[in-house]
Amino acid sequence: METSIRLNNKKVDIGNLMLNYNYYGVDDTSPTVILEAGYGMGSEVWGDLVSELSTIVNVLVYDRAGIGKSEAGTKPHHSKQVVENLKTLLQIEEIKPPYLLVGHSIGGIHIRQFAYTYPELVSGLILVDSAHEDQNDLMVPHFSDDVQEMYYGQFVVEGGLADFNSSLNQVRSARRPLKDLPVHVLSAGVKDDYHSEKTYQIWMRLQDDLLSLSNNTKQVIAKKSNHFIQNHEPKLIVNSVRDILDQIREEGANE
């Protein structure tokens, strides 16, 4: 099936700022995969994954407020605002649900917040080495002083540390069972340089905790990947999308 690009590199006024996005359409009946990048990263971080996914499913990739070609605006950059910005974009551009949400790092927090806020619009979650609401409490204190300084010093691009902490607190407060929603947890199997053995073990325990988000979860350890699974093993993300699409279609056939 060849990709039909309906909208490409478009900016839309969502009322308080201009958001930049790309949309790749397969057909009118396909769910739309929405890719939510990590902190401070634009849509280009997904690389060739977009073109591969867009041969099988509708894909939306965008720059959050203050990133890439999107305006920063004057509102906060925490998860609740990210969700409302995205929801408004989808409504204005008439990109209909269901949405299969894929989130990397802090993007995983944002897509969970979306699913808690608008569960009726979401057909699945794919968490790509996702951030966890308890990482600042359980993991970061065990970083070396240099790594802690680097960690906290990174929050200058997309809002600040207060927005990041707000996002973690918001998803912690919103957390509740997602029933039978398909949730795939893709976790890095290669330890990044900033991790010690102890902090990596804590990170993996936090990844394991994400398996309790619904009654329909699956974990994949990306054995050749560090935090950026989309760069090292993008096929794992494609496979998860295919698996969840198959579930959606099977459930639809049985209704």
Rank of each mutant, 00 (worst) to 15 (best):
P31C: 09
D28M: 12
F143L: 13
N8V: 11
L213Q: 02
N215A: 15
I109L: 13
H227A: 08
K224S: 09
G108A: 02
D209A: 15
E250S: 15
L19P: 09
N165A: 05
D145T: 14
I126P: 06
I5Y: 04
Q170M: 05
T217H: 12
F155R: 08
A37N: 04
N165G: 06
V26S: 01
K69C: 11
N136M: 15
L7F: 03
L161T: 02
S144V: 03
S166R: 14
I34W: 11
S144E: 04
T217G: 02
S167P: 10
V12S: 02
V45L: 14
S214F: 11
V147L: 13
S51K: 07
H195S: 00
K198M: 07
N22G: 15
D137R: 00
G160M: 00
R6P: 02
T55C: 06
D192N: 15
V50I: 14
S79P: 01
G124K: 04
V128H: 01
I14V: 08
G40Q: 14
N215L: 14
L60Y: 03
V238S: 04
E2Q: 01
T117E: 01
G252S: 05
L90V: 11
Q154T: 05
Q135N: 09
T55I: 03
Q91V: 06
Q154P: 04
L90H: 04
I92M: 00
A174D: 09
N231T: 03
N9V: 13
K191F: 05
G38Y: 12
S51Y: 06
L236W: 04
N169L: 15
N226H: 00
K179P: 07
T29Y: 06
S79Q: 02
P141H: 07
G153Q: 05
D28E: 10
G252M: 08
I229E: 05
V12A: 07
E94M: 10
Q81E: 09
G103A: 04
I111N: 00
N9P: 03
V59A: 05
V156A: 14
F114T: 08
G25K: 08
V33N: 08
N85D: 15
E84T: 14
L211N: 14
T3Y: 07
I56G: 03
H184N: 11
L211T: 08
V238A: 10
Q170E: 15
N136R: 12
R176T: 03
M150Q: 09
H104D: 01
I109Q: 00
